[in-house]
Design a protein around this nucleic acid. Structure first.
Length: 189
DNA sequence: GTCCTGATCCTCT
DNA sequence: GAGGATCAGGACG
């Protein structure tokens, strides 16, 4: 069974509850997706907004591709490409609930409490051992990366995206309400 | 070539 | 709540 990746705006909430698996040489890590953001075509906050460049080329690949980028000089973030190939849409994975490979995650993350192992886009990339080498790999190929049905989110909160300046008012962030691994809960407003 | 910005995290206070 | 770390891509000349 595979998720519906035909459109970023529907895929972002639909991916909540799916188990994201990375079967790496060091060992297997996996976590439930509990927070996502949609980045669309013609979206000023999206890396694809200014067209295809060498850095963003994976984002214009077929659905299921990973788009992994380096930012702030020290962090990696992971997106799953959606929409038809060439559309430049993707879903940013912002938080996971750790399920398998906790020891490996702890060793990759260094000293931190378990609740902060994967509670942010760069944290989960580090915990899962994902970096630039994995840019352009597919989660649909049933190889190193996989998506496995997990749970149906009982309640999904939709709100604005984090850390962007352009198109900041668009409510294209989704998270599992009450999950303790969500990076920033919104309590009101 | 130079300049600037950034889909973040961590460590203080 | 504020600020520093740290670097690659992209815009511009």
């Amino acid at each position: 069974m595979q998720p519906d990746l035909s459109n970023a705006l529907t895929a972002a909430p639909a991916l909540l509850g799916w188990l994201f698996v990375h079967d790496s040489p060091e060992g297997l890590t996996a976590g439930y997706i509990v927070e996502t953001e949609a980045y669309l075509a013609n979206d000023a906050a999206s890396h694809s907004y200014r067209g295809k460049t060498p850095r963003t080329s994976a984002m214009f690949g077929p659905p299921g591709y990973l788009y992994v980028y380096f930012t702030y000089g020290l962090h990696y973030c992971v997106n799953i490409v959606t929409g038809p190939a060439g559309s430049g849409e993707a879903v940013l994975i912002r938080a996971l609930e750790p399920v398998e490979g906790l020891e490996l995650m702890r060793s990759r993350r260094g000293n931190t409490i378990d609740r902060q192992l994967t509670s942010g886009p760069a944290k989960l990339a580090q915990a899962m051992g994902i970096d630039r080498r994995h840019n352009g790999e597919s989660v649909l190929a049933q190889e190193r990366f996989r998506l496995v049905p997990g749970f149906i989110a009982p309640r999904v909160v939709q709100t604005t995206r984090v850390g962007i300046t352009r198109d900041a008012e668009k409510p294209w962030r989704f998270y599992v309400s009450g999950n303790e691994y969500v990076s920033k809960q919104q309590w009101h407003g």
